[in-house]
């Protein structure tokens, strides 16, 4: 009867000693350790609303226009992203992050107004978005030491997000669901306006 109890006490004593010996910096999460360049790049989009919302907005924009437009943007944005990011990796010029808020206004506004753009215009706009945000990502990857691998990771997550989001919007047929997308576009504009205010404050 006593033996299990003493083993239990020893276990508690070991647990207590272990707790006392714990270092102050627990590093319990990958926030501090990272996932490696590729996966840090993949995760970068998810933790950067300045990129995430414009990418979501262009996905909604092309989704509202249909499959052909969506396919064109799906190819254009990641390619422009990587090319401009490659330039950004060299850190030639620092562009303020606040420039991304232009994307919020432009793409959110186009979604809210449900502007019927031709496929050529979609390609031009997709290239512009990919170039601006890709450049900034390349610059950030260079600062963070993630390099081209991180940049490719971020471009991959852009491609995946755009594929899923634009496909979802393309599939919407009921009238109010397409209106909900336009409302979401107005939210992107609203966030962009507030961010311009924050940056000028």
């Amino acid at each position: 009867m006593r033996r299990p109890s003493s083993r239990g006490s020893a276990a508690v004593a070991i647990a207590a000693a272990w707790l006392l010996a714990m270092p102050e910096a627990a590093h319990a999460h990958l926030v501090t350790t990272g996932l490696g360049p590729l996966f840090d790049g993949i995760m970068h989009l998810a933790v950067t609303p300045e990129d995430l919302l414009p990418v979501a907005a262009i996905s909604m924009l092309v989704g509202l226009r249909g499959k052909e437009h969506a396919r064109a943007a799906l190819l254009t944005v990641p390619v422009a992203w990587v090319l401009a990011g490659w330039v950004g990796l060299g850190r030639p010029v620092e562009i303020p992050l606040a420039t991304t808020f232009v994307s919020f206004l432009a793409f959110g506004g186009l979604v809210a107004a449900d502007v019927r753009l031709s496929r050529a215009w979609i390609v031009v706009l997709a290239a512009a978005l990919g170039a601006l945000h890709g450049y900034l990502n390349g610059y950030e990857m260079a600062v963070a030491g993630l390099g081209m691998t991180g940049l490719i990771g971020s471009a991959a997550s852009v491609f995946v997000l755009m594929t899923l989001a634009s496909a979802l919007v393309v599939s919407l047929e009921v009238g109010w669901t397409r209106i909900a997308v336009r409302v979401a576009g107005s939210w992107v504009v609203a966030v962009g306006l507030l961010m311009i205010g924050w940056s000028l404050r």
Binding site: W176, R182, W187, A190, L200, R201
Partner: peptide, 21 residues
């Protein structure tokens, strides 16, 4: 749907005016 589209954008514009003082 026009009112809920207009409102957030203009509201944010008001917020921006407040933020820039």
């Amino acid at each position: 749907w026009v009112l809920p589209v207009v409102f957030p954008m203009v509201m944010a514009f008001g917020g921006m005016l407040g933020l820039i003082g």
